Amino acid sequence: MADIIESAGVVLAYGVAGFAVMALGYLALDLVTPRRLSSLIWTERNVGAAIVMSGQMIGVGLVVAAAINASEFQRGLGVGLVSTLIYGLAGVIVMTLVFALVGILTPGRMGATVLEDRDGRPHPAAWVQGAMYIATAVMLTAALS
C-alpha cells in the first residue's frame, strides 16, 4: 500500500509540473497573438484561436510526456521534476519560435491571420499552425528519446 501512495504522490508531482509547463505554453501563445486568447476562445468563440491553442496544448503535452520519460527521476524526484520543467520550457520556447518563424515566412501577420474567423469558419492558416505545433512537438520528443 505504501508503494501505491508513493507512486500516487509522484504522479501528482509530475502532473503539477506538467500543468505548470502547459500554463507557460498558454502564456507564450497569448503573447504572440494580437488579442487575449481567453476572450477570443471563450467569449468570442473564435474557432481559429481554438485550433491553434489546441495544437499547442497537444504539442506541449507530448513534450512534457517525453520530458517525464527522459527525466532524471532515477537520481531522485526533485531532479526528475526540475529536468522535466527545463525540458518542457525548452519545448515551449522552440514552439513559440516556430510560430514566429512561420509568421516571418508567410504573408501578413501570422498572429492576426490565424485568428481570422469568417462566417464561423477559421482561416486555413489556423490548421497549419496547429499542425506545426504538433509536428514540432513530435520532433522534440524524438530529441528527448
Rank of each mutant, 00 (worst) to 15 (best):
L12T: 05
A13Y: 05
A13L: 15
Y14H: 00
G15T: 01
V16R: 04
V16P: 02
V16G: 06
G18Y: 06
A20N: 05
V21C: 02
M22E: 11
A23K: 12
G25T: 01
G25S: 13
Y26N: 13
L27F: 15
A28L: 10
L29W: 11
L29Q: 14
D30G: 04
L31N: 12
L31A: 14
V32G: 10
T33S: 11
P34M: 06
R35M: 12
R36L: 11
L37A: 10
L37Y: 10
I41S: 11
W42S: 10
T43Q: 13
R45D: 13
R45N: 14
R45P: 10
R45V: 09
R45Y: 12
N46T: 06
N46D: 03
V47A: 09
G48Q: 02
A49K: 10
A50Q: 14
I51Y: 07
I51A: 06
V52T: 03
M53K: 11
Q56C: 04
Q56M: 15
M57Y: 12
M57L: 15
I58E: 05
I58P: 08
I58Y: 09
I58K: 07
I58N: 08
V60D: 01
L62Y: 13
L62A: 12
V64M: 11
A66L: 00
A67G: 15
A67L: 05
I68R: 04
N69G: 15
A70D: 09
A70K: 09
S71Y: 08
E72T: 01
E72S: 06
F73P: 03
Q74G: 08
Q74Y: 12
Q74H: 12
G76M: 00
G76H: 07
G76N: 02
L77H: 03
G78E: 06
G78L: 05
G78D: 00
G80P: 05
G80H: 03
L81W: 01
L81G: 02
S83R: 10
T84N: 10
T84H: 10
L85W: 01
I86K: 09
G88M: 00
G88V: 04
L89E: 04
G91P: 01
V92Y: 00
I93T: 14
I93S: 05
I93N: 09
I93W: 15
I93V: 15
V94E: 01
M95W: 09
M95C: 09
L97G: 11
V98G: 01
A100I: 07
A100P: 05
A100N: 03
A100Y: 03
A100E: 07
L101S: 10
L101E: 07
V102C: 03
V102G: 02
I104D: 05
L105F: 13
L105P: 08
L105S: 06
T106K: 01
P107F: 07
G108S: 12
R109G: 07
R109E: 12
R109Q: 11
R109I: 00
M110A: 14
A112R: 08
T113H: 03
V114M: 07
V114F: 03
V114R: 02
L115I: 14
D117N: 14
D117P: 01
D119L: 10
D119Y: 13
D119G: 15
G120C: 08
G120I: 06
G120R: 09
R121V: 03
R121T: 05
P122C: 02
H123W: 07
V128S: 08
Q129W: 00
G130I: 04
